[in-house]
């Protein structure tokens, strides 16, 4: 690990922009922070251009606060709304072709294991439902089949939000959306169930209405991925803009989903359970 890259040369410390001074002084790099500590430290995500009340950006904020060692974390994403917030995070973030994130992450993780055999470099995929469940599904599943030691986090807003509100595989049946003018004809893709039968050793389904659970899930998923294999966290991050509800209703929408199709669920192997109990 290297906090050196967040250590300014003394001579230049003064001339850094304010946000960097804050990151250096109060960022989460040197002592561990969690979701609980939000509001008391300088977050690694700076301002972002997400819409007011955006569930995705809340999800990003929460997961960014939950990273067990942000100074050794690399995030791999894909085009979509999540890009906008993730690009502002104070860590390495890669974003290339739509849907290739789990393949990029696999290559990256393996190379970092070669180059830093004695350091845990956490490679975390953070992407939307379109990137993971539609166009990148095969690459997602194969990273799980192959037991890559990466964490995959889906920010599920149940729509292609960034391109203007099209039906995604994770949209709910019956939803009328762009490209589904008569309502979606098939159910939400059961990616969470897929994860169970495709080799993930730990998985959580959660919503942004339960921030502490999000924090715990992300942290566990990353720690488990280091030791055992692929892990998956699916976070419901409702989109007020495309689903046309008022921005202050995001958490209510998420909360209601918790009683309905987005109940909290966790799965883990016994091995993993023992490991987590020890932590």
């Amino acid at each position: 690990m290297s906090t050196k890259i967040i250590t300014p040369v003394d001579e230049f410390a003064d001339c850094l922009p304010q946000e960097y001074k804050e990151l250096v002084a109060r960022g989460p790099y040197r002592e561990p922070r969690s979701v609980e500590d939000l509001g008391t430290f300088k977050e690694i995500i700076e301002e972002h251009p997400h819409c007011a009340g955006c569930g995705v950006s809340l999800g990003i904020r929460l997961l960014a606060a939950a990273l067990p060692s942000p100074e050794d974390t690399l995030i791999v994403g894909t085009p979509g709304c999540s890009f906008f917030g993730l690009v502002q995070t104070a860590l390495n973030y890669s974003n290339t072709a739509f849907g290739n994130q789990n393949a990029v992450a696999a290559g990256l993780k393996r190379m970092l294991q070669i180059r830093f055999p004695h350091v845990h470099k956490d490679v975390v995929v953070v992407a939307g439902d379109g990137g993971i469940a539609d166009i990148g599904l095969d690459l997602t599943l194969h990273s799980w089949f192959r037991q890559e030691k990466i964490t995959t986090i889906m920010l599920d807003n149940e729509v292609y939000a960034n391109t203007g509100g099209q039906e995604s595989g994770m949209s709910r049946q019956g939803r009328v959306l762009n490209m589904a003018p008569q309502g979606k004809r098939f159910p939400k893709i059961p990616v969470f169930e897929m994860a169970k039968v495709s080799g993930c050793v730990y998985g959580v389904r959660v919503t942004v209405a339960s921030p502490r659970k999000v924090g715990r899930a992300v942290r566990n998923a990353i720690l488990v991925a280091r030791e055992f294999g692929p892990t998956y966290v699916q976070i419901f991050t409702p989109c007020p803009t495309n689903m046309k509800f008022s921005p202050n209703q995001t958490l209510k929408v998420a909360k209601e989903a918790e009683k309905d199709h987005y109940t909290y669920e966790e799965f883990l192997s016994t091995e993993v359970a023992t490991y987590l109990a020890q932590l």
Binding site: V35, K42, E43, H48, C54, L58, R61, P211
Partner: peptide, 15 residues
């Protein structure tokens, strides 16, 4: 701190 945990914007609500 419930508000802090439910705000999508970083560094807006401070404790």
């Amino acid at each position: 701190k419930l508000c802090i945990l439910s705000c999508p914007e970083p560094n807006v609500l401070l404790y």
